[in-house]
Design a protein around this nucleic acid. Structure first.
Length: 183
DNA sequence: AGCAAGATCGGT
DNA sequence: CCGATCTTGCTG
């Protein structure tokens, strides 16, 4: 697509990532989100932050994934198709913000761990004002939150996921954390 | 009904 | 390293 057309699309607000982006495997979607923008409306303000760090959680077999213990009230949304938002409270204090990926009944999600100048999933959600009300919302349709495409291309680093030792050595060593430098 | 654990963070 | 803080899911 030519640059002019791209700019026109941006102005028309059609730069939002759609369902086809999120319906792919989480190991494809997670690194692909780096450099893109999360856009959120809080009242009159629209804030836009580049995504700099994510983690992939992949299916019932992944012992670090909440779906490893099957469908429960909390994990219900993980089984919907890509684009649904999965939020939950951890340690009674911090909201974890995830985007479901893949096809229906294939529970996967990307955890948002870092945005420009903010690292740590709890701090990210605090900055974005995320709370339980986002549970189940469709990020490809919502009027208050969406992901915007971008042309940013940076070197992608990978490493093990954080804080999941309970999943055992095999799953906790999977290099499913992806990040770019904050600059 | 009770309890243990948790995809974290900030302060010692 | 430790405590905060509360929802969830499992057990009995």
């Amino acid at each position: 697509m030519g640059n002019l057309i791209k700019e026109l699309h941006k102005m028309a607000g059609s730069n939002r990532l759609s369902q086809s982006f999120f319906c792919r495997d989480v190991l494809t979607v997670a690194p692909d989100l780096l450099g893109k923008y999360i856009v959120i409306k809080n009242g009159n303000a629209i804030n836009r932050f580049m995504i700099t760090e994510v983690e992939a959680y992949r299916g019932e077999e992944d012992l670090a994934c909440h779906a490893s213990r099957g469908r429960t009230e909390r994990t219900r949304v993980l089984y919907s198709q890509g684009g649904a938002i999965y939020v939950y409270l951890i340690y009674g204090m911090y909201w974890m913000f995830n985007i479901v990926t893949g096809e229906q009944d294939n529970p996967q999600a990307v955890l948002l761990r870092g945005i420009e100048s903010v690292s740590g999933p709890g701090r990210v959600s605090k900055k974005l004002n995320i709370n339980k009300s986002y549970y189940g919302e469709d990020i490809t349709q919502s009027a208050r939150i969406w992901i915007e495409d971008s042309d940013v291309r940076r070197k992608i680093f990978t490493g093990p996921r954080i804080g999941i030792d309970y999943a055992g050595p095999y799953w906790s060593k999977m290099p499913w954390r992806y990040w770019i430098e904050n600059e």
